[in-house]
Design a protein around this nucleic acid. Structure first.
Length: 424
RNA sequence: GUGAUCGUAGCUCAAUGGCAGAGCGCCUGGUUGUGGCCCAGGUGAUACGAGUUCGAUUCUCGUCGAUCACCCCA
């Protein structure tokens, strides 16, 4: 009797959880509309090549974390590990990026074959925004201001910190990378194992190594700020000016780098200490080279993605989920006897006909009033409607308030329906 | 991919190399038409597979899964 289970790291979102998910999604959606950001929906599967070309061949994501398989016709396909590549592909394919500006957002599942732990799953969800065609730092600032407003709305503002950095132009990064490798190579033996490996693969990553000895060596390392190109410097200064004016606090973290190859200039992360090891809840940056790299015309771009599971985890641990989210019924209709049950359905449909989207649960499955009332209580309904022989004969409704001490009363069906708008 | 801890009822947890317990939940009754509180009764479990043993839920191994951390990342 081996039961079939969900795939490791791929979670069901149960009815108790879905209201929180919707709360987050709705809040974000409303906010995006306030900023003129349009929704786009992309497929979950893309050609493997798309991710190799955008994320970078030597990144961990591409090397060992992608769900890649051959289609029946032999094409190599991959479950998307992130949203940016697909968004660029779609925008490019449909001419959305040609000679114009765009603000786009999307949400959905992403897939990475990692070992699951708190705030990290194999199927996880992101809400992302990507903006195309804007060169200046104003759009970078706007995106950060947008996210800050989202934390405000969700009550998370006190629990997240904005970290900011500029990783400069590709040339500046290359020059710095060479200098860093040269410096670190002197101490190669003293570096931790992972950092020794990264010396060849991704030296910038060594900067945020957690190993104390490595951190010690880094104290004397060349500073990236000294290698930053003038254009990136100005861009960064411009961004900071916008943020200062908007009153948004940030920490410049010179060690902040990105795991994906396509970033340049602005990078930022919103981090929290309330989630354990997975502290990043939202991260993004500028990627001016990506569109061209994927075969399009050179187009400046900047974007970010939020980790939905991580944000929900935060809302739950910090007890910031509004209790009202779990209210899901206005009326629970109890009926005793066959005739009354038919009457109950009639009443229920009349209620649902009303213009204000009344939420009605009819009791199905029989049983006495006592059992039905228990269900009514559990249903979160504000009122129980009791229909028995008397009500059926007289075409009346007995209304019992469940969340207050007000007495129950009986009304004619017609009067009841009329009074519903005042009741809710 | 690496390491540590761990899998007992729908949920949270007990216990034992020899009949597996509780609380919550759920069902019924205490009210032939009334929820919450209370009382009584009922329901229901050792992840899967091998091994050791007279006997394994307990000991060993494997598989699957969970949790936390590393790695990586949202």
């Amino acid at each position: 009797m081996a039961r079939i289970q969900a795939i490791r790291g791929m979670n069901d979102v149960l009815p108790e959880q879905t209201p929180v998910w919707r709360y987050l999604e709705d809040t974000a959606r409303t906010l995006f509309e306030q900023y003129g950001v349009e929704e786009i929906r992309m497929p979950i599967v893309e050609q493997t090549e798309l991710f190799k070309r955008s994320i970078g061949e030597v990144t961990d994501i591409v090397e060992k974390e992608m769900y890649t398989f051959d289609d029946r016709n032999g094409d190599s396909l991959t479950l998307r590990p992130e949203g940016t590549a697909g968004c660029v592909r779609a925008g490019e394919e449909h001419g959305l990026l040609f000679n114009q500006v765009r603000r786009l957002w999307y949400t959905g599942p992403m897939f990475r074959h990692e070992r699951p732990q708190k705030g990290r799953y194999r199927q996880f969800h992101q809400i992302g925004v990507e903006c195309f065609g804007f060169v200046g730092p104003d759009i970078d600032a706007e995106l950060i201001i947008l996210t800050a407003r989202l934390w405000q709305k969700l009550g998370l503002a006190e629990h997240v910190e904005l970290q900011l950095n500029s990783i400069g132009s590709a040339d500046a990064r290359q020059t710095y990378k060479t200098a860093l490798v040269e410096y670190l190579s002197q101490y190669k033996d003293q570096l931790d194992e992972d950092s020794q490996r990264r010396l060849d693969t991704n030296p910038l990553r060594i900067l945020d190594s957690k190993d104390p000895k490595t951190q010690n060596i880094l104290v004397e390392a060349p500073e990236f700020a000294d290698y930053l190109d003038d254009e990136s410097k100005q861009h960064f200064a411009g961004l900071c000016a916008y943020l200062d004016k908007a009153g948004i606090a940030y920490v410049v973290n010179p060690r902040l780098v990105r795991g994906l190859d396509y970033y340049g200039k602005t990078v930022f992360e919103w981090v929290t200490s309330s989630l354990g090891a997975q502290g990043t809840v939202c991260a993004g940056g500028r990627y001016d080279g990506l569109v061209e790299q994927l075969g399009g015309r050179s187009t400046p771009a900047v974007g970010f993605a939020m980790g939905v599971e991580r944000l929900i985890l935060m809302l739950e641990t910090l007890d910031l989920v509004p209790a009202s989210l779990h209210d899901r019924a206005d009326f629970y209709i109890c009926a005793l006897g066959e005739g009354a049950s038919l009457y109950a359905f009639e009443v229920a449909e009349l209620l649902r006909d009303l213009p204000q989207d009344v939420r009605v649960v009819t009791h199905c499955g029989g049983g006495g009033f006592k059992a039905q009332m228990k269900k009514a209580d559990k249903s979160t309904a504000t009122f129980a409607l009791l229909l028995g022989e008397d009500e059926l004969q007289q075409r009346t409704i007995t209304i019992k308030p469940l969340r207050s001490d007000l007495p129950q009363k009986s009304l004619s069906l017609e009067d009841f329906i009329k009074s519903v708008p005042q009741m809710l």
